[in-house]
Structure formats: C-alpha cells, structure tokens
Design a protein around this nucleic acid. Structure first.
Length: 412
DNA sequence: TCTGGGGTCCTTTTCCTT
DNA sequence: TCTGAAGGAAAAGGACCC
C-alpha cells in the first residue's frame, strides 16, 4: 500500500522526503538570459584565461546585449590555449562536444560553435538568488555547490503532499519568476535516491521515487549513476562484470568488502539497495582554501625562475586575500605541482601559528617547494592553506604573541 | 588527444612517542 | 641499549564532485 498523502499523521511518523534540486544547464542558461539570440545554437562555456567576449562587448558598447549580431560572437576555432569546456548546450553536444573536453579538440569537432568564458560574478549572483527563493519555502537546505542543493521536505508544511510534488512545483515557479531559470527536482526517501531522481526528468521536471520503485527504476541504471562511483571505481566494477546497480546489489557484502575495502565496499552494498541515512547538512565550515593555476606553457624552475617566482607570490597573495575575505586563518600550508606528464605531487607543513599573511604563507610554502623535484617541467602550481580556524577567535592570541611578518625566502 | 579550478573525504604511509 | 608493538598525528596520494 502506498500512502501518498499523509494528511493528519503525527510528526513522529512522517516519512522522510528528501529533494535534490539541480539547475538546468546552469552556466549556459545564465548566458542565454543575456544573449537570447544564441538560443538553439551550439554554445560552449569554458576557457576563460582570456575573456573571449571582452572585444565583443567593447566593440558594441552602447548596444543592448540582445542586439549584438550573431556573426560577431567569438567562435571555438579562434581559441588558442589550454582550457577545457565547463558546459556545452545540447546543440553543441550533437557534435560530440562534452564537459571537461579540451577546447582544442572541441574546436576540431565544431569550429563554428560560439565560445563564451564563465562569468563567475554573474553565476554567483544567480546562485544566491535561486537559493534565497528556496530558503523562503524550504529552509532545511544543504548547499552542494553553485547549482545544486538538497532539501529536507519532511517537516515543511505541505512537504508530504503528493510525495513532495506540490512543494517542488512551488519552488520551480518561484525560481523561474525570480531568475528566469529552470531546474529539475528529484524527491525520494533519502539523498542518494533523490540525486538520481533529479536526472530522470530533465529539464524542468519533477521525479518522485518511492521505496518500492527501487528494482524498477534504480536497478537497471549503470553503477556510474550512483553519486560517489566515479570513473575509476566504475572501471573496476565493470572488470568484475557488474554493469548495473541491480548487478551490484546481487553481490554479497563480503565480496564487495574484499574488492573495495570495508568503507567503500560497505557503502556500495548499501547504496545499491537504495539505503542512505545521511542527513541534510545545513551548515558547514570550510576545511581548506587554495589557489592553483595551469600555465599557458610548461615552465622550468631554472629557465623560467622569474616567471614562476612571480606566479608563486601571486598565488600566495590570492590565498591570503581569500582567507581574509572569508575570515579564516590556517596553520597547514601546502603546495601542489603538476609535471608535464600530468603527474601531481603535494607537500604540506603544519606550523604552530595560524596565519592569513601572504608573506608567511609564501615562506612556509617555499619550504615545501624545496622538498620536490624541480628539475622537471611544470604545468601547474598551487598553494593551499588548511586546518582553518575563524580569524576572530585567534586574533587576540596572535596579537599577544607579537607575530612577526616572516622574511620572504628566495625561491626559484 | 587532451586533460581547469576549487573543494571534500578517505586510505596509506611515515614518523614520533610511549 | 636494542627491539617491537601500538597509537596518534601529520603527510602524501587518490578518488570524486561541481
């Protein structure tokens, strides 16, 4: 029996109703609001080292954005550099273009596709706007990044009606009115299933999963559809002949633990059965703050010493600025390098005093740099600060200790 | 062929102390 | 003094996500 309307039940017996909301093609949709003339055309968002549309905007100053002629938009074929695609519209995907693909490869597949850089300020503004709408309606919200959230409908008034569909519709309408954007919502007894459900009816859809839908709707899906099974784990599962979630669910716990370890094996065993009791987390503190950059061309620690040194300093300054802007200090300072063969290494160092000072960060990060092989060519350099604490709580202690600004050491 | 940037979490290794 | 066990913290790497 299915009780889809739970009018009159007491709070203690309300079944969990968890929603996952995912904005539809968020980055591309935000651009289409500005440039409606691009609707239906192959559009790629990404790159961004150079603002490909700067010239466009400069050349048409005074003209409404919607009136800029199509012929003047930057095309994929004109791009030179190392970027990857953040997102592509369906029209672009028809050419075989997809997220995370190198832009140079995409340019070969569809040279005429329009290329726009990610406008993070605008994206963040839209993100705040749609989340504000949601919070007004369903305040138990877990932020899962720029374009998606989990919601706990269980105790929201009306959250149980039609299994959550009524509330979901209300949220969709509110977001559309406030931002002009559409989203897809999946509702299920837990986050795991809600996340899968939100993909069932895209775009602008609502999908509901009930406990007894597991075999019919979930088990035929590939294992990769489980949030947490990525390309590596999926390849390993395929080697074991486990292609679908149903096949995964057919394996005993000890077999999965044998192949994947206690933690991951146990988790997969539950996930394949649609079990997940993780809560909707409404508040979280950051664990680390970092900045990294991939160079236009591979650099060498000796031959490109000046350039690398300047980049390194800038990364430290950016991390320091980010820490200060967000009100944190940290005491684990680390670096990340990527060599020309794409091998990555990290080194870090935990110090006594928390800091958000650029010179201090550079000094400790410089110590880390001395512990890696700098004879090979580099393609990426990053700086990270972890073991964070709220700046305010430590401010007085730092002042009392008479913290001195560190001397910067010659590096590179 | 080509592979960004900013994160989190987990596992394994290493080092230190008792 | 040497050795080993055990446990914890830090370091390093890897997988995954948006």
């Amino acid at each position: 029996m299915r009780s889809r309307d739970n009018v009159g039940v007491t709070a203690a017996t309300l079944p969990r109703r968890i929603a996952h909301l995912d904005m539809d093609a968020f980055f591309a949709s935000v651009e289409l609001l500005r440039y409606p003339q691009l609707k239906g055309l192959p559009l790629v968002i990404g790159g961004g080292r150079r603002r490909a549309d700067d010239q466009l905007l400069a050349a048409h100053a005074g003209l409404a954005l919607a009136e800029i002629p199509l012929a003047d938009f930057p095309r994929l074929r004109d791009y030179a550099g190392r970027g990857v695609i953040t997102t592509a519209t369906y029209a672009a995907r028809q050419f075989g273009i997809g997220s995370a693909m190198g832009l140079m490869k995409a340019a070969r597949l569809c040279p005429d596709a329009i290329l726009l850089p990610v406008d993070f300020d605008e994206i963040r503004r839209c993100s705040r706007a749609f989340k504000a709408v949601i919070r007004d309606i369903a305040p138990v919200m877990e932020d899962r990044g720029i374009d998606e959230v989990y919601l706990d409908f269980t105790d929201v008034p009306g959250g149980q009606r039609e299994g959550g569909r009524v509330l979901a519709r209300l949220i969709q309408r509110g977001i559309l009115d406030a931002t002009g954007l559409t989203c897809s919502i999946g509702i299920a007894p837990n986050k795991l299933l809600a996340k899968m459900a939100s993909e069932f009816d895209k775009p602008n859809g609502i999908a509901i999963i009930w406990p007894d839908d597991l075999e019919r709707l979930i088990w035929p899906l590939p294992c990769r559809k489980i949030n947490g099974i990525g390309p590596r784990t999926d390849a390993k599962l395929q080697q074991l002949g486990l292609l679908t979630i149903g096949q995964l669910a057919s394996r005993p716990l000890d077999e999965l633990v044998w192949h994947f370890g206690r933690s991951q094996g146990g988790w997969m065993f539950d996930a394949a059965r649609g079990r997940d009791d993780s809560p909707v987390v409404t508040h979280s503190e950051p664990v680390s703050i970092s900045r990294e950059t991939t160079f236009e061309r591979d650099l060498h620690a000796v031959h490109d010493k000046a350039e690398l040194g300047a980049l390194f300093t800038r990364l430290c300054e950016q991390v320091a600025a980010d820490l200060k802007a967000k009100g944190y200090v940290g005491r684990t300072i680390g670096i990340k390098l990527r060599y020309d063969d794409f091998q990555s290494v990290t080194r870090d160092l935990t110090v006594e005093q928390h800091t958000a000072d650029a010179r201090e960060i550079r000094r400790h990060a410089g110590q880390c740099l001395k512990r890696v092989d700098l004879t090979r060519r580099l393609r990426l350099l990053g700086v990270r600060v972890g073991t964070l604490a709220r700046a305010g709580k430590l401010a007085s202690a730092a002042a009392a200790s008479g913290l001195k600004a560190g001397r910067s050491l010659p590096l590179f």
